[in-house]
């Protein structure tokens, strides 16, 4: 009955060193790639759990963004009267703001809590821990990606055709995901040490909704405030998405895009350095 592996152990020649030093970025990335199946299993599990025992199942993927788009169009377009003077149908403008925001406001807390939520696994087995915040963002990103199907349906409904600018859309999409990963890497580690931010971040996100052009557009912000406003990295991403999908709507938001890219890169460097320096010590810190 005892199963015997047919392959008898052939000892590899390469030595691996375990010491207290922080890994280099290339070495860590190689390891992430080696352990990629852990991410696949975690992502699949989260997706299954999310839709298991739901009556509508996958229909939720389109139903949620539809409701968001309708509710926001009503609140900002009809009630607040922002609907006038736009070249594109207002629900489509809203969609390009609310859906990225919805993704961001889910992905950030999800990845922030990913290390703490799996601490019992981290304490008992090794794999590169960055997998957890990355997988958490990936799950939300899949939902986010599918939501754009609704945008395509909306374009058909309104008889609206995006222009050549749509070719640049994947760049903004990728930047938003990168931003979420970066923030997730940073916050998930901090959250292990200081549980305060578990309370702080949801609160900041509530405020963040109002200083992000989700329900309105950048043009609503007075000209002399726009530079300050663009310090919110989501401004460049969301306005960039609108520009790419809505025929270059209000012109290319150069300042916002440049500021957003800079902030993403700087935060990226800080987050990666901090994560590499802390990764090995996580269990001792918790």
């Amino acid at each position: 009955m005892t199963p015997i592996d047919t392959t008898s152990a052939v000892i590899p020649h390469s030595w691996r060193t375990i010491d207290g030093h922080a890994p280099t970025l290339p070495a860590y990335c190689r390891e992430l790639y080696q352990y990629r199946e852990v991410a696949y299993v975690l992502i699949r599990r989260d997706l299954i759990v999310r839709f298991r025992q739901t009556y509508f199942g996958l229909a939720w993927l389109l139903f949620k963004p539809l409701m968001l788009m309708l509710a926001m169009s009503f609140a900002f377009g009809f009630l607040a009267g922002f609907e006038k003077n736009h070249a594109a149908p207002y629900p489509l403008i809203i969609f390009c703001g609310v859906i990225p925001w919805y993704f961001f406001s889910n992905a950030v807390p999800d990845s922030m809590n990913s290390l703490l939520g799996h601490i019992h696994i981290i304490q008992k087995t090794y794999f590169p821990r960055a997998i957890l915040p990355i997988a958490a963002v990936a799950v939300d990103a899949i939902e986010f990606g599918v939501a754009w199907l609704l945008f395509a349906l909306g374009c058909l409904w309104f008889g609206y055709l995006p222009g050549w600018q749509i070719a640049l859309f994947p760049l903004f999409f990728a930047q938003l995901i990168a931003l979420c990963v970066v923030i997730g890497l940073l916050l998930s580690v901090v959250n292990v040490q200081f549980r305060d931010i578990g309370n702080l971040i949801p609160f900041l996100l509530t405020i963040g909704f109002f200083v992000t052009p989700a329900g309105y557009t950048l043009t609503r912000i007075p000209q002399h405030w726009q530079t300050l406003y663009a310090l919110n990295p989501l401004v460049g991403i969301i306005e960039g998405m609108r520009w790419s999908l809505l025929n270059g709507m209000d012109g290319f938001p150069l300042i916002a895009v440049a500021s957003s890219l800079t902030i993403t890169v700087v935060m990226g460097i800080i987050a990666v350095r901090h994560f590499l320096a802390t990764d090995a010590d996580l269990v001792d810190l918790a």
Partner: peptide
């Protein structure tokens, strides 16, 4: 590799 050594390897 759950915890790092303080010294040595």
């Amino acid at each position: 590799r759950i915890i790092p050594p303080t010294r040595g390897q």
